[in-house]
């Protein structure tokens, strides 16, 4: 059953991505001021949204783990954190490429860039903590605590660094601006690609989840073998 869901989602994500790439590359015109490079935003913005959905899911799953101690929730937390961290890396990389073309520099200590980097570091430390603990129950518990701390921190970081300095382009999606900032066709393309990336992310999480469950099973067998 799970197998089938993964294949269906993967197929849907692939079809959507092909369709979106066609629209983005061949249908939509170049943007007036930025030229062709603006197309990077069709991946940049949806990746950012996907990665935050993933971090939020990891935080919630971690809280549920602490309440129920069900190892499944720990597996969900680690799977979505890892996948989200990959999306966060995409956000940082695409952002840097865009900045190099438009601003002429790879990196600037702007509010959103800085917060994204802090966020990346926080969740990288989550993965490092997991590697440092051998006992599975303890690992699950401690990393759940860290995940909750990290997500709370991400919110504070975004608020505080926004006060600090902002150079990043302002919000463009009409749910944030009330409309009129962007060509509706372009905005639609962003949403379509968001759907594609969320589906793609979900597939990755499901695959990672299955792998995590197998790893647990193998660990259990290995310990059993040592005990005998």
């Amino acid at each position: 059953m799970r197998e089938k869901i993964i294949y269906i989602f993967a197929a849907a994500a692939a079809v959507l991505l092909v369709r979106n790439l066609y629209v983005i590359l061949l249908v939509l015109p170049d943007e007036a001021q930025q030229g062709p490079i603006y197309r990077i935003m069709f991946f940049h913005i949806p990746s950012a949204i996907t990665c935050f959905i993933g971090f939020l899911a990891a935080g919630i799953s971690s809280a549920i783990y602490l309440a129920t101690k069900n190892p499944r929730n720990d597996a969900i937390a680690v799977a979505s954190t890892e996948v989200s961290l990959a999306f966060a890396t995409v956000v940082l990389a695409t952002g840097s490429i865009w900045a190099r073309i438009i601003w002429g520099i790879w990196w600037t200590w702007d509010a959103r860039l800085t917060s994204m980097l802090v966020c990346w570091l926080l969740y990288a430390s989550y993965l490092m903590l997991r590697r440092a603990i051998d006992e599975p129950t303890q690992r699950a518990k401690f990393s759940a605590v860290l995940s909750i701390f990290a997500f709370s921190d991400v919110i504070i970081v975004w608020k505080s660094i926004e006060w600090w300095r902002t150079q990043h382009p302002g919000p463009v999606l009409s749910i944030r601006t009330g409309g009129g900032q962007m060509n509706p066709a372009m905005e639609a393309a962003i949403y379509w690609n968001l759907l594609a990336l969320i589906l793609f992310g979900l597939v990755l999480v499901l695959v990672r989840l299955r792998q995590e469950e197998m790893r647990r099973e193998i660990d259990g067998m290995r310990q059993m073998a040592h005990a005998i």
Binding site: L122, S125, A132, L146, F149, D153, V157, K159, S160, I161
Partner: peptide, 15 residues
């Protein structure tokens, strides 16, 4: 582990 874990979390306070 301790510095790796706490410095990123301390960033807003330090800022």
């Amino acid at each position: 582990m301790l510095p790796i874990l706490i410095y990123p979390i301390m960033i807003p306070a330090l800022l």
